[in-house]
Measured scan of single mutants.
Amino acid sequence: KSSGQLMAEWGLDDVDYLFSEEDYHTLTNYKAFSQFLRPLIAKKNPKIPMSKMMTVLGAKWREFSANNP
């Protein structure tokens, strides 16, 4: 499932962030990516359980990696 599908299924607000060329150069591993995106997700979904946060971050990382030029 996509991150958007997961968040909709769980009734969470998705984070629409348009990644720049620079993001693809600086966010080169999962740790850097999650440190960048986790606060954005948490801000829109302050009560998100950690298990769902990790699942969403994993899905967003897969999508980000697939779109990386």
Rank of each mutant, 00 (worst) to 15 (best):
L6N: 04
E9F: 02
K47S: 08
G11K: 10
Y24P: 00
F19H: 05
S3V: 05
E21A: 11
L18A: 07
K1E: 02
M54V: 14
K43V: 04
S34R: 11
D14E: 05
G4D: 13
Y24G: 04
F33D: 00
E21T: 07
K31R: 12
A42Y: 04
K43T: 15
Y17W: 05
E9Q: 13
K1W: 03
E9N: 09
S20W: 01
K43A: 10
E63R: 01
D13P: 05
A32E: 13
F19P: 11
Q35R: 12
N45I: 01
W10S: 08
E9C: 06
M53H: 00
S3T: 09
P39H: 01
K1F: 03
H25C: 13
T55S: 08
V15D: 06
F64E: 01
V15S: 06
D13S: 15
W10L: 15
H25Y: 14
Y30G: 02
D14S: 02
S51V: 01
N45H: 07
W10A: 08
K52R: 13
S34K: 12
L57P: 00
A66L: 15
D23Q: 08
S34T: 15
Q35W: 04
N45V: 01
M7K: 03
L12V: 08
L6F: 06
A32W: 02
A8Y: 12
Y24C: 09
A32M: 10
M54F: 05
S20A: 10
L12Q: 03
L27V: 05
T28Y: 07
E22T: 11
M7W: 02
S51E: 06
G11I: 00
S3Q: 06
A42S: 04
T28H: 11
Q35N: 12
V15W: 03
F19R: 01
K1M: 07
Y30K: 06
Q35V: 10
E21M: 09
S20K: 14
S34P: 14
A32T: 14
D13M: 12
Y17Q: 02
I48L: 13
F19N: 01
T26R: 12
G11D: 08
K31C: 09
F19V: 04
L6S: 03
V15I: 14
F19K: 01
T28K: 10
K31T: 10
S2Y: 07
W10F: 15
Y24R: 09
H25N: 12
Y17A: 04
S2F: 04
K31A: 11
W10G: 02
E9R: 10
D23G: 01
K47L: 02
T28R: 08
Y17V: 07
Y17M: 06
S51P: 03
Q35D: 13
A32G: 06
M7H: 01
D16P: 09
S20D: 12
Y30F: 10
V56I: 12
N45R: 00
L18Q: 15
T28N: 11
H25Q: 14
H25K: 15
D16G: 06
A32H: 07
I48M: 13
S2P: 02
K52E: 13
E21K: 12
D16C: 02
S51T: 10
D23H: 11
G11T: 01
L27W: 00
G11Q: 09
D14A: 02
T28A: 09
K31P: 10
D23A: 02
F33E: 00
Y24T: 06
Q35E: 09
E9K: 13
G58N: 14
L12W: 08
E9Y: 12
Y17N: 07
W10C: 05
Y17R: 04
L27M: 08
S3I: 06
N45W: 02
N45F: 01
G4R: 14
L57Y: 00
S2C: 04
A42K: 15
V15K: 01
A66R: 11
Y24E: 04
L12S: 03
K44R: 09
L18M: 13
S51Y: 04
L12N: 05
Q35I: 09
Y17I: 10
E9H: 10
E21L: 08
Q5S: 11
L12C: 09
T28C: 10
E21W: 07
V15G: 03
Y30H: 04
Q35S: 10
G4T: 14
S2R: 07
L18S: 12
L27K: 00
L6Y: 07
H25W: 11
Y30M: 07
A32K: 14
S51A: 07
A59R: 06
S20M: 07
K31W: 08
L12F: 14
Y30T: 02
D23E: 11
Y30L: 09
D16M: 03
W10Y: 15
K1A: 01
L12P: 05
F33R: 00
A32V: 10
G4P: 08
K1D: 06
L27E: 01
Q5K: 12
D23V: 00
W10N: 12
M54L: 15
G11A: 06
D16T: 06
M7I: 06
G4A: 15
G11L: 09
P69T: 03
Y30C: 02
S3F: 10
Y17K: 05
V15R: 00
E9M: 14
A8E: 14
E21D: 12
A59S: 14
G4H: 06
Q5P: 01
P49R: 04
M7Q: 02
Q35F: 02
F33Y: 08
R38V: 01
A8H: 14
L18F: 10
F33H: 00
D14M: 00
A42H: 10
D23W: 00
P46G: 06
E22K: 13
Y30D: 05
D16R: 02
M7P: 01
D14Q: 03
P49S: 15
Y24L: 08
G11R: 08
S20Q: 12
Q35A: 11
N67T: 15
Y30V: 05
K44A: 13
S3C: 07
K47E: 14
S2N: 11
G11C: 09
L18V: 15
K31I: 09
K1S: 05
D16N: 05
D13K: 15
K31G: 08
L6K: 06
D13N: 15
